[in-house]
Amino acid sequence: MLMMAGLVALHLADHRSNTELRAELAHLLLPGEQSPGSLRPSRDTLEAMHILLNRPQGFSRAEGQQLSETLLAKDDPLLREFALSIDLCRLSRHTALNVPATQEQHVLGGTPPPMDGPWWLEYVTYRRKVGGKQVGGRRRLDNLELLWYRRALRGESPPHEELSKRLLRAAREARVGPIPRGQ
C-alpha cells in the first residue's frame, strides 16, 4: 500500500498540465520563438510533445497541422520523423477520413523521392505505421524493409533499384485491392 501511495505521489509530483507542456514546447509551438540552436531534441521535448498530442483536449487539428509543418521544416531528422508518427498524423487530417496531406506530401511528394537512408527512416515511420490509411499507414513492415531500416539507422541507404521496384509494386497493389488486414 505504501509503495502504491509512493507511486501515486511520484505521479502527482511529475504531472505536467497542458499549460506547462505548452510552455516547455514554446520554441516549437510559437512561430516567433527562437529554437535552442541546432541542438538535438531532448528526450523530454519528444515526451512532452507525445503527452500533449495524446491528451484529451491537448491539441486541435489546426494546431496539429501547424506543428507538423514546423517539424517537417526542421533540420533535425528526429523531429521530422516524429512529425510522421501516429501522434501528429492523427491530428493533421482536415477531416476524419482524409489522409494526412502534409505528411503525405513530405514523404511521397518529391519526384523522384530521395530514396536514401534518412528518407527510408521517414518512409517507414509514415507508411508502415499501425492504424490504416487515415493516418498514412499502408501495408505492413516486412523483413527486407526492416533490414533496410536497421541499416538506415547506421547511415546506409537502401539499394536503389530494389527499392524502386518495391515502391512501384506497392503503388500498383494499392490501386488493385484492399490493404491486407488481420491480427
Binding site: N54, L78, F82, S85, V124, R128, P180
Partner: peptide
C-alpha cells in the same frame, strides 16, 4: 499483421524512446 505492428512499435521505442499507440 500484428507481428509487423509489434516490430513497428519496438522501432518507435528505440528511435524516439516513446511507446506509441496503434491508433
Amino acid at each position: 499483421s500484428d507481428e509487423a505492428n509489434y516490430v513497428y512499435l519496438a522501432l518507435g521505442l528505440e528511435r524516439f524512446g516513446l511507446f506509441f499507440d496503434c491508433y
